[in-house]
């Protein structure tokens, strides 16, 4: 019989605000993405210095996961993330480092982040999740894909829960909407509810 699934918790990071389950938990009018992410890091205080080596996309994915995973004991949690700009923000930095043959400075520390799934790796390491994972790209947050794939992973016993959502960085704009799907909670895991929570 199919398991009944719920959106156990959800959070968002956008427009200088951080919210958890619809409640504002942090707000700061920062000058730029970097300083805002640093403030969110300080607020969450994970004591994880590797954070500062990450690119913006990984930082955003890491911070969102930190909010949802703080008191989470389950370990077989899949990670399914998506966005619009893939790792283009960092791709452009790598491209800038090779455009000028006279001033050529490609760096492995930048290049490794030219893959959008690196943030999934960072979350996996941080929370020791040796589980199913995948990074997908769509024009906009695709509730139909997310709902179905999250459901399939749990119903087929590939994972116990799924940490999923939308994490996008493109130049100065950023947006994260992450949630945990499991058999616990009160908000039913439906396409309609995902759409509604995302648009809130």
């Amino acid at each position: 019989m199919a398991k009944e699934l719920y959106i156990q918790n959800y959070c968002s990071i956008k427009n200088n605000k951080v919210s958890l389950n619809g409640n504002l938990i942090f707000e700061e009018n920062s000058e730029d993405i970097k300083s805002f992410f640093k403030s969110v890091y300080q607020y969450l205080d994970p004591k994880y210095s590797k954070f500062f080596k990450m690119d913006a996309l990984s930082k955003l994915a890491f911070l969102s996961a930190e909010i949802l995973m703080k008191e989470e004991a389950k370990k077989n949690i899949a990670i399914i993330l998506s966005n619009n700009a893939s790792s283009l923000d960092t791709d452009r930095k790598h491209q800038d480092s090779i455009n000028d043959k006279e001033n050529y400075y490609p760096s492995p520390a930048v290049f490794v982040y030219t893959l959008p799934n690196i943030g999934i790796g960072e979350i996996s390491i941080r929370h020791q999740l040796k589980s199913e994972n995948g990074f997908f790209v769509f024009e906009n947050y695709n509730t139909n894909f997310h709902y179905n794939y999250e459901n399939i992973l749990i119903q087929n016993n590939k994972s116990e829960a799924v940490l999923a959502g939308w994490v996008n960085i493109d130049g100065d704009s950023y947006e994260a909407f992450l949630y945990l799907v499991s058999q616990n909670g009160t908000i039913e895991h439906t396409e309609k509810n995902l759409k509604q929570l995302y648009n809130n």
């Binding site: 990670i79 492995p108 960072e122």
Partner: peptide
Amino acid sequence: AGSCNDANHIS
């Protein structure tokens, strides 16, 4: 099919 993370190192 299965796809599992090492949770060890990014590169």
